[in-house]
């Protein structure tokens, strides 16, 4: 892997050039009030790469909250036409745990029946990663994420003193930086490694990630589900902000003239009360505790059993976003550890 460097100022000029060229939308992290969000950049002035976490992960660009899938004329089966437009985009400043999450999303949307709406956006995107430079009190990524970030990143940046070290991960990344003042790297690998690890996580899952699927399986009847479920608003914030949650609902909307229809998909999530309601009105996860357990099982048991990785990247967004203060996997597992049931826990 080629390693280059660029001064901070040159990097900003490079981005401004990219924005002017308009070959792709340039998206980056910007400040909103006292927190951060991903947004399209009009110039590099607004870019705020020194951030703790963004409110929503970059998944909003690949699986928009409301997305048009196709148009049709009601009652005419011949008339269905898929709509799948997307502009090329470059997203700058994605932390490694969010990249790991994109890797997981890619697997989910490409295996079996390929989801063309998602994949087209992914194929048209350049991902510029960044090692975090700022502490976030709920983050525990180090205890759960392995090397997945490099499977999707096109470039990885490490903040040094006045410079960025840039690891060129893919051919796409290499093309993207042509024309910028990226020069030969002069930092030692040790210096780069230290910079990558400079920001520590305070939080960590109290047991080894590999053991979690079994651990959860044995604790199906643990009181934590009910205790935490009782406090839950079923507000869905924890799944909405989660970079590895991808559930959606598909709906048809018909115009008032009843002659034109469109099919859309919108974000949905297993923590919402009506998520598991079937056509006959039966809700197979009626209780809040059941929904709470289901979500943790998705991250810590079902996904690991299917794909061999923990389905949570430790971004801490769910814990931060939960008004009831219960959603974080660290908090849940800590509670289970602190309240061991006679021989139930491993």
């Amino acid at each position: 892997m080629e390693i280059l460097k660029i001064s901070e100022n040159d990097f900003m000029s490079f981005l401004d050039k990219k924005i002017d060229e308009k070959a792709e939308k340039v998206i980056g992290v910007v400040k909103k009030g006292s927190h951060f969000v991903f947004n399209e950049l009009e110039s590099s002035d607004k870019l705020a790469l020194d951030y703790d976490v963004t409110m929503l992960p970059p998944k909003k660009y690949f699986q928009p909250p409301k997305e048009l899938l196709l148009k049709y004329k009601p009652g005419n089966p011949e008339s269905y036409r898929a709509v799948n437009n997307c502009d090329p985009m470059a997203i700058v400043g994605i932390h490694y745990y969010d990249l790991a999450a994109i890797y997981m999303m890619d697997r989910a949307f490409s295996e079996g029946e390929r989801d063309e709406h998602y994949m087209k956006k992914r194929d048209n995107s350049i991902l510029v990663g960044l090692y975090p430079t700022k502490y976030f009190k709920y983050r525990f990524a180090k205890s759960v994420v392995r090397d997945q970030a490099y499977k999707v990143a096109d470039l990885m940046m490490v903040k040094m003193n006045g410079d960025y070290v840039v690891e060129v991960v893919s051919e796409k990344g290499k093309d993207f930086i042509k024309g910028g003042n990226f020069i030969e790297n002069t930092y030692t690998l040790q210096e780069i490694d230290d910079a990558k690890n400079k920001v520590k996580d305070d939080q960590k899952i109290p047991i080894s990630v590999e053991l979690i699927p079994d651990y959860l399986g044995k604790n199906h009847g643990h009181p934590v589900w009910e205790v935490f479920g009782e406090k839950c608003f079923s507000c869905g914030s924890c799944v909405l902000v989660c970079p590895t949650c991808y559930c959606f609902d598909v709906r048809d909307e018909v115009e008032l003239n009843l002659e034109e229809g469109k099919r859309i998909r919108i974000w949905d999530g297993c923590m919402l009360e009506d998520f598991a309601v079937c056509a006959d009105g039966h809700n197979f996860r009626k209780e809040k505790g059941q929904r709470f357990r289901h979500r943790i099982y998705r991250k810590g048991k079902h996904l690991p059993e299917k794909y061999h990785y923990f389905g949570c990247v430790g971004c801490g967004r769910c814990q931060y976003s939960c008004a009831a203060d219960i959603a974080g996997p660290v908090k849940v597992i800590k509670y289970m550890e602190d309240n061991k049931q006679g021989g139930q826990n491993v």
């Binding site: 909103k32 608003f233 507000c235 869905g236 902000v241 974000w267 919402l272 976003s321 008004a323």
Partner: peptide
């Protein structure tokens, strides 16, 4: 049949 928080989170507001 879901709370306003969802729409609030979608707009990336600070709580």
């Amino acid at each position: 049949n879901y709370p306003v928080c969802i729409e609030c989170k979608l707009r990336e507001n600070e709580c």
